[in-house]
Design a protein around this nucleic acid. Sequence first.
DNA 1: CGAGTTGCTGAACACCCGCTGAAATCGGGA
DNA 2: TCCCGATTTCAGCGGGTGTTCAGCAACTCG
Lengths: 224, 224
Amino acid sequence: MTAARILVIEDAEAIRAAVCSALRDHGLEVLPRTDGRELEADLHRFRPDLVVLDVMLPGRDGFSLLEVVRRGSQSGVVMLTARDGVPDRLRGLTGGADDYVTKPFVLAELVARVDAVLRRLGRTPSTMQVGGLVVDAESGVVNYDGNAVELTATELRLLEYLAAQRGRVVSKTQILTAVWGYEDYDPNLVEVHVSALRRKLEAHGPRLLHTVRGLGYVLRPGDT
Amino acid sequence: MTAARILVIEDAEAIRAAVCSALRDHGLEVLPRTDGRELEADLHRFRPDLVVLDVMLPGRDGFSLLEVVRRGSQSGVVMLTARDGVPDRLRGLTGGADDYVTKPFVLAELVARVDAVLRRLGRTPSTMQVGGLVVDAESGVVNYDGNAVELTATELRLLEYLAAQRGRVVSKTQILTAVWGYEDYDPNLVEVHVSALRRKLEAHGPRLLHTVRGLGYVLRPGDT
DNA sequence: CGAGTTGCTGAACACCCGCTGAAATCGGGA
DNA sequence: TCCCGATTTCAGCGGGTGTTCAGCAACTCG
C-alpha cells in the first residue's frame, strides 16, 4: 500500500514545520504550502487524500478554501482553528470539515485525528499487523498470537505508535513527543510503559518489542 | 454498502457548514452548495439520495427548486423553513417535500430526519443488529435476546448512535455532539444515560456496552 | 577490573475517571 | 394550573491509571 498524501496549508512557519514533520514521522507523504494560491493546481497534481487547513490565512480565509477542496476533490479536510476569539458555540460550526483541531494543540492529537479521518474515508486500513500482533485502532482491540490483550489507554497509544513505526528504531525522545506531546522529559516514563506493554504482550508470545541500547526501541518480530 | 449522498443547498455560511459537518460525521457523503443555480447539473452528476433545501434563498426560492428536484430525480427532500409559519409548512409538504425542519433547529434533529427519510426511501436499512440486540430505528422497537426493552427517547437515540458505530470506540465528546448536538459539555450526562441503558439492556442478556477507560464506549457483543 | 551510564521493574501514591443514587429541573398533557 | 415521567445536575465513592522514585541489573569503556 502506498502512503496517504497530505496537503498542509499553514502560513506560520513553526507550526507548518512541526505539523509536516509529525505527519512524515507517521509515515505519510506531505506537501507543505504557506497559502492556498495554488490550491486547485495542488489538488489536481498532488491528489491529496486529506488537506490540513489553517482557518486564519493571509488573503483568502480557510473557509473559502474549504469550499474549493470540496468542489474539486474527494479529499478529507482537517481544519486548524484558534480557540480564543471564537465563541464556543461557533466552534462546532467551523466545519463542513471532517474534523477540526483547536490551537494550541498537541501534535499527537492532530496526527490521531488525521488518522481517524483517513480511516473513515477508507483510505487507510484501521488494523496494523506485526508478526503475530494485530492492533485495531478503531475498536481499540489488540491481539497477540490469537489472544486478546487488555491494554490501558496510554499503552494502546504507545503500541499504535510503535506499530506505525514498525521495524524502525525510535528514540525515547521521539516517543515522548509523539505519544505524550512532551518536549523534554524523563525517559523513565517511556521505560515504565514499555515494561508494562511487554508484560502484557509477551505473556502470549515471543519477544516483539526490542531494546536498542543507547538508541531506543523497535517493534519487530524475531529475536534479533 | 456505500454511503448515501446528500446535496445541501443553503446560503448562510454558518448553517451550511454546520449541517454538512454533522451529516459527514454521520457517515454520509455531502456536497454543499450556496444556491440552486447548478441544481440540474448537480442532480445529474452527484445523484444525491436526498437534498437538504433551504426555503429562503437569494434568487429562486426553495419551492421552485423542489419542483426541479422532483422532476429531475428520485431524491428525497428535507426542507429548512425559516419559522414555524404554517403557510410555509403547508407549502413544503404539499409541494412534496418528504420532511421539513424549522429553524432554529438542533443538528441532531436534522440528522435524525434525514436518516428517517433515507430509510423510508429504502436507501438505508431500518433495523440494526449487534449480537442479540435488534434496534429498529423506524418503529423505535428494541429487542435484546428476544425480550422487548422499553427505552426513553434519549436512550433510544443514544443506542441508535452506538449501534450505527458498532465495534468502534466513540468518545463521550463524539456522543455529545452526535446525540445531543452539544460541543462542549459535561461527560457525566453521557455516563448517566449509558448507565440507564445498561440497566435496561443487561437485565436480559450479557454485557454489550463496554467502557474503554480514557477513550469512550464500544457497542460490541462478547466479554472482551 | 572498576566506575559510570543506561535500562528494567516493583512499589507507592495522588489523581482522575467512571458509576450511581438522589435531588432538581424541564416539559407535555389533562 | 397541577402532575408525572423524562432529563439533567449534583455529590460522593471506589478503583483503575499515570507518574515518580529507588534499587538493582546489564552493559560500556577506560
